[in-house]
Nucleic acid binder design. Structure first.
Lengths: 158, 158
DNA sequence: ATCTAAATGATACACTGTAACACCGCAAGC
DNA sequence: GCTTGCGGTGTTACAGTGTATCATTTAGAT
C-alpha cells in the first residue's frame, strides 16, 4: 500500500510504475496516451506535490514546446477524467493518482510546511459527508475531501 | 436545527437571525461589524446559494457603491475568518454560515441542479479524512468536505 | 487634541481557466 | 484511391478569480 508519500521510498519506481499503469490502462480502454499526455503525467509523477496548470506549462516550455494554456489544461482534463490524476480544489492544482485505476473517491492530506500531498482512498458514502447526505436525503455524485495540516515529519520538527 | 436549506422555510428569518447573531458576536468579541461587512453578509444570507466574489461585487455596485474587487474580498475574508461565512472551494464561491458561531468544521452538500448548498457540522477528526490522517500520522488543521450531487427535490424530479 | 491602528478607496496587476477557430493525421467506408 | 469524419494539437484572444500596494479616512485610546 502506498500508505504514505510522506515516507521515504524509491521515487523512480513511482514514475515508472505510474506511466506503465497508465499506458496499460489506455491500451485496454482504447484511449490515446499521446506524447503530451504522457509527458504531463510524467511531470506530475515527478514529485509528491501538487502542481498548478501553469507550473506544468512552464515545464512543457522548458522541453522546448511553444505551449499555451489550453495544451496543459487539455492534458490535465484527460488525466483527471480517466483517473490518472486528481485536482486538489484547495490548491487549484493537480497531482498524479497514486492508486490503482478505476473509479475511486480520493481524500487528500496536504502538508502546509513541506507541501507534499498524500492520497487516501475512501468510500464516497461514508464519513461525515455520507452521514450528512443520508440525513438530508442527498444523493452524492462526487466528493471533495481535503485536509490541510502537518505531515508526521513536519509536526515533529515543530 | 437547520438540517436543511433544501426544505421550505421562512427565509426572512434566516436573514434577520443571521445578521443579528453576527452583530451580537462582533459586539462580544470587539470586532467591527461595519456597514460593508454587514451588507455582504446580508447579500450572502439572501439565498441558500453560494455567490462568487464578483457576484457580491455586482450587488454592492447596484447599491450605488463604486466597489472594486478588494472591497468584496476584504469583507469576505472578515466573514470567513470569523466564521460568519464559508468558502466553497469547489465553486470558488462563498456562502453564509448557517450554524452557531465559534470554530466549527463544516461540510457542504451542493446540488448541481438547483445550485443550493446546505451546510452540516462535523467533527474535524472524524470521517474518512480523520481515518486517513490517523493512519498517516497527519495532524489536521483544516478540512474541506464538499459533496456534489442531487438534493432530495431534484433527485425526485429526475 | 493627537496619535495609532484598522478599515476603506483605488489602481494596477497576477494567477487560473476557457471559447473559438484553424490545422493535422488517421481510421472507416465507399 | 478518395473523402469524410473525428479526435487531438496549435494558436489567439479573452474571461474569471484573487492580490499587492499605496493613499486616505475613520474610530478609539491616551
Amino acid at each position: 500500500m502506498p500508505a504514505d508519500a510522506f515516507d521515504p521510498h524509491d521515487h523512480q519506481d513511482c514514475i515508472a510504475e505510474g506511466l506503465e499503469a497508465a499506458e496499460h490502462h489506455c491500451a485496454e480502454a482504447g484511449l490515446q496516451f499521446t506524447p503530451i499526455r504522457r509527458r504531463v503525467l510524467e511531470i506530475l509523477l515527478g514529485d509528491h506535490m501538487a502542481l498548478g496548470a501553469y507550473d506544468i506549462l512552464d515545464r512543457l516550455r522548458s522541453d522546448g514546446l511553444n505551449a499555451q494554456p489550453p495544451m496543459a489544461y487539455r492534458a490535465l482534463d484527460f488525466l483527471v477524467t480517466h483517473g490518472f490524476a486528481h485536482r486538489i480544489e484547495r490548491l487549484n492544482a493537480f497531482i498524479a493518482c497514486s492508486h490503482t485505476r478505476g473509479d475511486h473517491t480520493p481524500a487528500f492530506l496536504i502538508c502546509r510546511t513541506c507541501q507534499r500531498v498524500v492520497e487516501a482512498d475512501t468510500d464516497p458514502d461514508a464519513g461525515e459527508l455520507g452521514r450528512a447526505a443520508k440525513q438530508a436525503g442527498f444523493v452524492i455524485e462526487r466528493t471533495v475531501r481535503e485536509a490541510e495540516g502537518l505531515c508526521p515529519k513536519c509536526a515533529d520538527a515543530a
